[in-house]
Amino acid sequence: MGFDVNVTLSKKAAAKLAAEKEGIVVFASYYGDPKPSAAKHANEVGLIDLTPHDEEVEIPGTGGHARISGAKVDAKRLDWLAGPPDVNVNVASARKSSSVNLLGCDFIDGPLSNVQGAPVTLHCGLIEEHVDTKLKS
């Protein structure tokens, strides 16, 4: 259930993260639509959460590779899905130098099968840059 993400940064984001000695965190959660017989296990938006907590991978503030292992997926819950699992991935600053997130980043939200194989590149800029983030799936 693992896959790879490559985080790239705008020049301004790279400079700010370096100056602040800030890191980057990639968050992943897995989910899916419930079988009718498993509807009672669905969350408040009608989906099955496959991960009790997001998988978090910290990478340096320079960006780069993050391996999402899928190790936090509760395999028993896969039987509750009506189809294949989906994944949601977001990227944020690690909040070492500031209590607020500094980054606006592309994100992943869709079928897990679409992100397995070649690494998916997620580009980030500073929130103040008003980066046009994109859904990658």
Results as ranks from 00 to 15, higher is better:
residue 53 H to Y: 06
residue 128 E to T: 08
residue 67 R to N: 14
residue 117 G to K: 12
residue 120 V to G: 02
residue 73 V to D: 05
residue 91 V to N: 12
residue 125 G to C: 13
residue 61 G to V: 03
residue 71 A to G: 07
residue 74 D to V: 15
residue 25 V to T: 10
residue 31 Y to P: 00
residue 65 H to K: 12
residue 108 I to S: 11
residue 52 P to Q: 14
residue 97 S to N: 11
residue 47 L to E: 09
residue 36 P to L: 01
residue 33 D to P: 00
residue 117 G to T: 13
residue 118 A to M: 06
residue 46 G to D: 12
residue 111 P to E: 12
residue 44 E to R: 10
residue 63 G to R: 03
residue 32 G to D: 01
residue 1 M to S: 13
residue 80 W to P: 14
residue 53 H to V: 10
residue 21 K to P: 01
residue 82 A to K: 09
residue 111 P to N: 11
residue 55 E to T: 04
residue 54 D to P: 06
residue 119 P to Y: 00
residue 15 A to L: 09
residue 18 A to G: 10
residue 128 E to W: 00
residue 39 A to L: 10
residue 61 G to W: 00
residue 54 D to H: 06
residue 95 R to K: 15
residue 131 V to A: 06
residue 100 V to D: 13
residue 32 G to V: 01
residue 91 V to R: 09
residue 51 T to D: 11
residue 55 E to A: 04
residue 14 A to D: 12
residue 24 I to N: 03
residue 109 D to T: 05
residue 4 D to E: 13
residue 8 T to V: 06
residue 94 A to N: 08
residue 8 T to H: 07
residue 72 K to R: 07
residue 17 L to W: 01
residue 93 S to G: 02
residue 70 G to E: 08
residue 26 V to F: 14
residue 44 E to M: 04
residue 117 G to F: 10
residue 95 R to M: 12
residue 50 L to G: 01
residue 35 K to W: 03
residue 89 V to L: 08
residue 91 V to W: 06
residue 90 N to G: 08
residue 23 G to I: 07
residue 128 E to P: 00
residue 49 D to Y: 00
residue 46 G to Y: 08
residue 32 G to Q: 02
residue 95 R to W: 02
residue 74 D to P: 00
residue 21 K to C: 07
residue 44 E to L: 14
residue 72 K to P: 07
residue 106 D to R: 08
